[in-house]
Design a protein around this nucleic acid. Structure first.
Lengths: 157, 157
DNA sequence: CATAATAGACAATGTGGTTGTCTATATAGT
DNA sequence: ACTATATAGACAACCACATTGTCTATTATG
């Protein structure tokens, strides 16, 4: 009769798994012409989406302050992945949109993530990996990062 | 025939799962008299262990610079979870040891993590959870306990 | 039209990380 | 033994990413 694994192994493995994927993603992104992208930039650009947003809206979407969102937009703008424009319908708003390079980098990241998933599927078997994803989905908040909004997360490929 | 889930779902769910566990751990720790503990402190105190370490050694263990490790030790010392002492065998070294309170907080965290794991086992079934742990172990570096992703702890909440 | 809500800019601060430099101490090689 | 090298830790400057608070301009509402 085997005893249960210690409870702390779960968060540790989840973190390590995340790190492995993100590290390999960014190593590959750097190799393919995107050395400036930081781990969070992918999430932020996903949240911006094809339609564009504003800093305050982006903050609400990601669950951070509008100031934090604004600063992240600053750096993404500086390295050429987003651009700001005025909103003709509301003089207060400045709309953030992905540049061509931003859209390309998202598509590339999606391809790399698919490759990495295929490697996990090879190591574990497609059925086991699918079970892992299903189970994580079951214990993870559904609305986190607003994944329930149709059409933006992953909708850019 | 069903198509594969997109590759980006895997890292996202891993991150969300990690955050869910860590957030609940620290909410419970705060409730039980340890409001000053930050997400990384548990990992750091685990790495210090009963035997104690030094800042440089701790940095190597965690995969961060000795300066970063030293600063984290500073804050843990300030809130009373570790203490520094001289090493009689080497005048350069200052040994970091857990205080009573530090050891208690680790034991408490272990209990809370076990409770959280039990909740996941209840939701998924013990066999599915065990499979999840096994599979994560298989795709994750064996001895790794490196926390060197700047900004991910406490980010996006 | 006055008032309230919102968008964004700016500043100060906190946390956790980085390099680089410095001194003191230990260890190894001739 | 003595010199060369490696190591521990302190200190400073800086970066990334977040926070709260304050301010102005603009839009929406009673």
């Amino acid at each position: 009769m085997s005893t249960d694994p210690p409870g702390w192994e779960l968060p540790l493995r989840l973190l390590l798994g995340f790190r492995v994927l993100i590290d390999e993603l960014h190593a590959e992104l750097a190799r393919q012409g995107h050395p400036d992208l930081r781990p969070m930039h992918g999430f932020v650009m996903q949240a911006i989406g094809r339609g564009g947003t504003t800093a305050a809206e982006l903050g609400r979407l990601l669950g951070v302050s509008k100031q934090a969102a604004g600063k992240t937009i600053d750096t993404l703008e500086r390295v050429g992945y987003v651009e700001r424009g005025a909103d003709p319908a509301d003089a207060r708003r400045k709309v953030v949109r992905l540049t061509e390079r931003g859209i390309e980098s998202l598509a590339l990241a999606a391809r790399i993530f698919d490759d990495l998933r295929a490697r996990w599927a090879h190591a574990l078997g497609e059925d086991r990996l699918r079970a892992l994803e299903t189970d994580l989905r079951a214990v993870t908040p559904p609305g986190a990062l607003r994944l329930d909004i149709p059409g933006w997360f992953g909708g850019l490929d």
